[in-house]
Write a protein that binds this DNA or RNA. Structure first.
Lengths: 342, 342
DNA sequence: TTGTATGCGTTATCAT
DNA sequence: ATGATAACGCATACAA
């Protein structure tokens, strides 16, 4: 440890001619300190550049005033917005936010949870792919809020967008434009949201009398998406989709790139729509038609739910907040009414 | 604290019929433990779901195996890439990375430093706007690495792109395309990189015989950039710039938006180039010509320098790593050789 | 190979 | 209004 950090509450106390206890009281804003004493102590703190050791404090009190957020890909503007919302809500209540990046790896997910719990964050906001560590947390009665996918048998707060409604809206929009050969470029197979999308997609198409819907599963990273998109667009002309619903903005990017490689124009040759609005959607060529989810709000609400539970653990009841998404029509779907604006 | 977290090393020891000391040895991988004892202890750990308390460990050892990264705007892909690089490097050495978002506020910057130091992160990677807290850290001999701006009188490792060379290249490219009315849409006034850009910009233009260069200072958030860009493009026709160098990708976005509002085409009416490449640059309309900086590498090297210093504090000597940027010509500058590819 | 004693920096509790 | 003492959970030094 560094010299400067060797400054402890004892040093401050000595310099101010009081006991550590009194310094502690000043630090924690107790009123039971004489104004002049308080002043002397404050001076000592400033002169020594004293910063309380949060480890010692946390060890003793059992609270760190820190919460953790685990997301699949912090490089995705969607998750950045979620994080920003959570940070805001946390900061208002005097909590710090620690963000971990899962990157699609279940191993990493468990690792991160271990690290954060080891550091005794007071609670967790989790965009979890794997349910395993969650049941563990549940057994420990460790407070956490799920953002996005729900998990069977896991009793917890949940905050998420209505993915089902979103996909219905997206597919419906394409149908209303006359499309019949529509494909879903989905995320990794098997998780909750992925299943929701497939369910909504097939149901909507079936209701419109369109059989055997095309579903491709890519990964959310660039490579996986690009390969899946290329495969989709390389199908023989009769099978090739004339419209694609991408499960998130990065997958939409993949479609754009793949189409470019194959000399396919968007929206003339393939229409494109996707989940999640973001700054660049209105600037990308072509401007993307998206199903917008209130990412920032999701982050805020998730943090708020967690903080509420921390405040009153006994009174906690699992809450589920599901937000309807909003269709923003731009150009990539080929709609006549597509706006240039964001 | 939660029931599940009440599991301490003592509980594990009791269950395994040994002392806390022996458990500690297993946790830290000492070889001096009988295989069968080790096994018993491991079982106890698993059954109880024991996770060591990093607070207690850190308090005792004086090391947390955690480093902090403070950036101006984690929402910007550039900084996300830096963070990702730093996380990689850290993880390889068994360190966790905690990221803080400064958001252009010096108050927030000091606050974050206080919080992280309070939590006794072993060192800091800082993209600092304000020099004040740095001198404080220096006096305390607290290890930190600067990413981006340097600061006078601050002795520390520095990792950054060569902003001066970058702006020279960008302005030079526009000059070579025949432009004379070139403006710099700069970031916030006064910091190191901002001054570097102005210096390189004026010098390059002067060398080409172009007088009185136009420099506008925006903030890096969307609003500030948009206003500045609009002001620039709304100048009377004789003064209006025919080419703009944007100080980062978000400012370039502002220019695109502002131009659209004013019915100005890019690159026909205004050419546009900017710093920092990113996924969307090759998809944005028009594809952006950029000066690419090795963001990921910067993050990695910064972390590596910090870890090296932590490993051998006595042998530490301040190192400065400056990377030349690379010009990637696409369409927004109006160059004939502009590629469609990324 | 395993155990005992001690202290890291802070605050809760009880005392003055 | 302030102080003394103990305790949080763990690892270091030393002992057995």
């Amino acid at each position: 440890m560094n010299k400067g950090l060797r400054v402890t509450i004892q040093d401050v106390a000595a310099r101010a001619g009081v006991t550590a206890m009194t310094v502690s009281r000043v630090l924690n804003g107790s009123h039971r300190v004489a104004p002049e004493t308080r002043q002397r102590i404050q001076s000592a703190i400033d002169e020594l550049g004293y910063i309380p050791n949060a480890l010692a404090r946390g060890l003793l009190t059992g609270r760190t005033r820190t919460i953790g957020l685990l997301v699949d890909d912090i490089g995705n503007p969607y998750w950045t917005a979620v994080a920003s919302g959570a940070e805001d809500a946390g900061q208002r209540a005097g909590y710090s936010l620690v963000v971990g990046n899962i990157g699609g790896s279940e191993v990493r997910e468990e690792q991160l949870i271990r690290t954060l719990v080891g550091n005794r964050v007071d609670g967790l906001l989790i965009n979890a792919a794997s349910g395993r560590p969650l049941t563990q947390l549940m057994k420990s009665n460790y407070p956490f809020v799920l953002i996005g996918p729900e998990h069977k048998g896991v009793r917890s707060d949940v905050v998420r967008g209505d993915v089902y409604a979103g996909i219905v809206g997206l597919a419906g929009h394409l149908l209303s434009l006359g499309h019949r050969k529509i494909a879903l470029l989905n995320g990794p197979k098997g998780d909750f949201e992925s299943r929701e999308r497939v369910r909504g997609f097939t149901k909507t198409l079936a209701a419109a009398g369109v059989g055997s819907p095309l579903v491709a599963n890519g990964t959310f990273d660039y490579r996986g998406g690009y390969d899946a998109a290329t495969a989709l667009l390389s199908l023989p002309a009769r099978e090739r989709p004339r419209a694609i619903v991408a499960a998130n903005n990065f997958l939409a990017l993949s479609v754009i790139e793949a189409a470019r490689e194959l000399n396919l124009r968007i929206p003339e040759d393939v229409a494109l729509v996707c989940f999640d609005d973001f700054v660049f959607a209105a600037v990308i060529d072509p401007f993307l038609t998206v199903m917008s989810q209130p990412a920032r709000l999701l982050g805020q609400q998730a943090a708020d739910l967690l903080l509420k539970r921390l405040d009153d653990p006994a009174g906690w009841q699992p809450t589920k907040l599901i937000h309807p998404p909003e269709l923003i029509v731009r150009r990539s779907c080929g709609s006549k009414s597509g706006r240039r604006e964001r």
